[in-house]
């Protein structure tokens, strides 16, 4: 039987076994699956693992996630207050950095794998590895040094520091965030994650000017990844666009997989990647809330076929899917990606 891992390995070689890999970022939906409030759901690694396994069986996509919520990384760096919602992702409520003196005081844990705030994630990974290791790609979410400050001090204060300085504080924070990233990726690899999503919205020129991308985003990317290497690492910029920097990132960093934003033209992304790496056809998952299943199917078909016309080094993906997406649309999306993600379904 062909597994998700087999499909992913084949796609990376430019081959399709039965269909392209279908990556589905179902995170908050796990709480609904287990019938519990989001705050309860995120309190235990076994809940997250169980929901991921149930959803994998229910929907038939290819991957599982060890991500609880993005603010988890802030907790590893000292955040003590998270704001939970009933219908969406939790958010950092109390920022670790409230003044520049806090940047100087910020301490990067020596060993993240033994940090108490990592314990439930490690437990989740242990279960996922035991149940589907080697069969379904196990994903982890790691924020790049250039983007992590946004959850430590707020987007507003980070962009203010980036654009107005003082540069020595900016650079000190980037140093610490990069040191954290290097320890974090080591911990995730040790715990069993195989797909390491390098989340870097500030690595998109939707967020920063090209000059800053070249002077900061790109060098810090290289530095984050220098020690641990690129094995299993995916370049991801959230909902932002990546096409404007794709060629530079491929040339200078050389990730094996790229995850364009939903506003990128997939045809252009595939042409830019030009078979140098695996690339995602990523749907605008905010629209999945209101589209009909037929509209979902048509959009998935358009995306997948547009990508496949250029190369087989393709997977289907979502951003972090909103909690409010109806179950019927999740099913319609995955079914369509499986159905149209095959060369024999390619229409002229």
């Amino acid at each position: 039987m062909i597994t998700g891992m087999d499909r992913l390995a084949a796609a990376a070689r430019g081959e399709i076994l039965d269909r392209i890999p279908v990556f589905c970022n179902l995170v908050d939906q796990g709480a609904r699956e287990l019938g519990m409030p989001l705050e309860t759901y995120f309190s235990r690694g076994e809940y997250v693992a169980e929901a991921q396994l149930r959803m994998l069986g229910k929907y038939g996509h290819d991957n599982v996630w060890s991500l609880f919520y993005v603010g988890r990384e802030a907790e590893l760096l000292g955040c003590r207050k998270i704001k939970y919602a009933n219908d969406g992702p939790p958010n950092v409520e109390d920022f670790v950095i409230k003044s520049y003196a806090d940047i100087e005081r910020l301490e990067v844990p020596d060993d993240i794998s033994t940090h108490p705030a990592f314990a439930e994630t490690a437990h989740c990974l242990e279960i996922l590895k035991r149940e589907v290791g080697g069969k379904a790609p196990i994903c982890a979410y790691l924020t790049a040094s250039m983007s992590l400050p946004a959850i430590l001090m707020s987007m507003e204060k980070w962009i203010e520091l980036l654009m107005l300085g003082p540069t020595e504080m900016r650079d000190l924070l980037l140093e610490k965030c990069s040191a954290f990233f290097q320890k974090e990726i080591e911990a995730y690899r040790k715990a069993g994650a195989d797909v390491l999503v390098y989340a870097d919205p500030y690595g998109s020129t939707d967020i920063v000017p090209m000059s800053m991308f070249r002077e900061l985003s790109l060098p810090w990317m290289k530095r984050d990844l220098a020690a641990g290497g690129l094995d299993g690492v995916v370049y991801y910029v959230g909902g932002a666009r990546v096409n404007g920097v794709l060629d530079q990132v491929i040339e200078e960093v050389g990730f094996g997989t790229y995850y364009p934003g939903p506003m990128d033209d997939i045809g252009e992304s595939m042409r830019l990647v030009a078979d140098r790496a695996l690339c995602g056809a990523v749907i605008n998952d905010i629209r999945l809330i209101d589209w009909t299943p037929e509209e979902v199917r048509a959009e998935v078909k358009r995306l997948v076929q547009r990508g496949l016309k250029i190369s087989k080094k393709l997977f289907f993906g979502t951003i972090l899917m909103p909690f409010g997406i109806p179950d019927a649309n999740i099913r319609a999306m995955i079914d369509a990606a499986c159905e149209f993600g095959r060369p024999d379904r390619l229409e002229a």
């Binding site: 203010e160 980036l162 107005l164 939707d206 967020i207 920063v208 800053m212």
Partner: peptide, 13 residues
């Protein structure tokens, strides 16, 4: 014209 969030921030600032 391809603008970005940092430009918008600086324009307002």
């Amino acid at each position: 014209f391809d603008t970005n969030l940092a430009q918008h921030f600086m324009t307002a600032h």
